[in-house]
Every structure is written in C-alpha cells, then in structure tokens.
C-alpha cells in the first residue's frame, strides 16, 4: 500500500454513483445505424432528382432522411449532397420553397435539419479554407493561393448565409436553438 500514489487514484472509477460510470447512451435519443452504402445510394437518387430539375423534391428528400446513425464518412457524403442542392437553387426560389416545406407535415423538423446542415456547411468551408492556408508553398506564392481558396469558401459561405437568413425568417430563432440543443448530429 505504501508505494501506491493515492493522489493519482481515479476515485470516479471506484464510486458507483459517479457520472464516469454512467451509460451515456441512455441519455440521447436512440438513432438507427445507417451504413455508408445506404447514404451513397440515397445521394445518387437525390442527384437524379436534381438532374431532372426537381430541386425542391431533392431538398425535401435529403432533409427527410438525415443519416443520424451514419459514421463520419456517411455524414460527410450527405452534407455534400445537401450543399450541392442548396447551391443549385436560385436565391429568389429560396423563400417559396422553404415556406412550402414548412407548411407540409413534419415541416418544422425538416427545417431544423436544414439548419443543422447550414451550420455544418459553414464549419466545413472555413475548415478547408484554413487547411489550405497552412499548406507550405515552396514557390513563395502561398499568399495568393490562400486568397484564392478563401474566395472559393466565401462564395459557398454567401450561399449558406442567404439560406440562413431566409430560414430564420420562416423557422424563427427556435430553430437555431434546436440545432445547438439537439444530440442527433448530422
């Protein structure tokens, strides 16, 4: 006993009431696991709608089936699909499409999902932007390169920002709060 450093004992592991011993899965709503292949096939179906010019149907389909149970790769595929749809819809069509989705049954849920993807998309574009900035450029043109990357991200960001503005007009700040609160991440 003498050589046990009692200051480093993890007392939480010994206390049955400690939060370290909780089964945390019971706290979050259960989500069914989704395989990456399923996400991929859904993405190709949605792309088909998109090619057929049915932007609204594509958006609705993408928002109704968020792959909460997928792994990171599956979630990234679905994010790319949603962003592609968002970028293909003209600014003047945004509000009418959003109000139609909102008034449909389960519409608030769908708009909450859209809000999640908008925020995730914003996080994504800025992350890739910085990633490009840190790539070492032996030619010394790193600055120009970084600026180019930033502008590309900026365009994607401006699409997301205008979607965000239109969405808040319809779904209200409640939808933002739900994105922050929800344990089912996209």
């Amino acid at each position: 006993m003498a050589n046990v450093n009692w200051r480093t004992i993890n007392i939480d592991a010994l206390d049955p009431d400690s939060p370290a011993n909780f089964d945390l899965t019971s706290l979050a709503p259960s989500v069914a696991p989704v395989s990456t292949a399923d996400v991929q096939s859904l993405a190709s179906q949605i792309r088909q709608l998109l090619r057929g010019g049915d932007n609204e149907g594509a958006l609705q389909g993408a928002l109704e089936n968020p792959p909460y149970g997928a792994d990171d790769k599956g979630k990234d595929i679905h994010l790319a699909t949603v962003i592609e749809i968002l970028q293909s819809i003209r600014q003047s069509d945004m509000s009418p499409i959003l109000s139609r989705i909102y008034s449909a049954p389960g519409g608030t849920e769908a708009l909450d999902v859209l809000m999640k993807y908008i925020y995730k998309g914003m996080a994504q574009t800025s992350a890739t932007g910085t990633a490009r900035n840190v790539t070492p450029q032996p030619t010394g043109f790193s600055q120009i390169h970084a600026r180019g990357g930033g502008e590309g991200g900026g365009q994607a960001m401006s699409v997301l920002l205008s979607w965000h503005e239109k969405l808040v007009e319809i779904a209200g700040p409640g939808s933002i709060v739900r994105v922050m609160t929800d344990r089912r991440t996209v």
Binding site: L27, A28, T181, D182, R184
Partner: peptide, 8 residues
C-alpha cells in the same frame, strides 16, 4: 420522458 432532441 424524453423529447426528440433531448434538450435539457
């Protein structure tokens, strides 16, 4: 009871 998002 738990609601959909499991907000506190």
């Amino acid at each position: 009871f738990l609601n959909n998002t499991a907000g506190w």
